[in-house]
Design a protein around this nucleic acid. Sequence first.
DNA 1: AAGTCGGGGAG
DNA 2: CTCCCAGACTT
Length: 345
Amino acid sequence: MTIAPRLLEWFDRNGRKNLPWQQDISPYRVWVSEIMLQQTQVQTVIPYYHRFMQALPTVQDLAAASEDAVMHLWTGLGYYSRARNLRRSAQIICSEFGGEFPNDVERLSELPGVGRSTAGAIVSIAFQRRAAILDGNVKRVLARVHAVDGYPGVTSVARELWERAEQHTPEVRVADYTQAIMDLGATLCSRTKPACGICPLVDDCQAHELGTIAQFPGKKPPKVLPVKRTQMLMIGNSAQELLLEKRPPTGIWSGLWIFPQADAGADPIAYCSDQLGIEVELLERWREYRHTFSHYHLDIEPVRLRLKHAPPTVMEPERHLWYNLRAPAAVGLAAPVAKLLEKLA
DNA sequence: AAGTCGGGGAG
DNA sequence: CTCCCAGACTT
């Protein structure tokens, strides 16, 4: 049994065909879209995708761009290693493959940031060669159609879903099929309130037959997020510029620029003197607020400070930047920094 | 197998 | 608040 014929018939009448990455299809355009869409909703990606493709229309442009320029285009989108890997992969494609994308899952998966599902999407959509995908939408559709119990993060559950994905993927019209099953998951077969009444797969759906749609797919086991605290130091100079630091290449906000951070409870003036070698005076403290990541909460205490003397020599130009609000540098900013800069402006 | 990595939309 | 999104990678 395969769901492909009914899915394709539904797709012809109801599928999405006007998404930005569905126009002028090329491996590069499909690849960029698939990376942006990892763990990120379509409506969030669209404006980023337009800006990115306008700034860097070819893989050669991306390979030649500076890391700061790419991070700037990614600011606010999250999972910033995607942007760094995207640039690295572009350089590999240009230097090792002569600017041509591999057209098979095995070689595409060797590119940093491209896993099995993303490779399958590129192969099926850009090259129209048979390859299965298994993203969040497909997991939900297949878990329901086959009543696959358990959380897909568990290896055995993922393995069964991959088998089902391979089983249903057709030889013909594979690009349309890939788009169709994602569209079904994103529209009718949604996480809450699925529209089973108009679903083309309702007669194939074991979860619907069981009357337990809401049980599929299995939920992620909840865990309590730890809470971390920090002060963000908004240090202004006499030119109305703000001091930013570049994050190291690994860890949270890697490659982005942030305000200097002092431990919660520490004296920010002493921190500036000891760690930055600058003398500052306190202007005001803003209300603490919570920024939440996938794996912890960060309670941020914003502090406004003013530089008392001219910048010292200890500050390293590679790691420090005076950010001018009226002529902002094209660098990547962590979301809380962008938010605080907005409030300062 | 479990942890790391972001930010936002929807309920 | 909770839950999860066109996941990949490291430990």
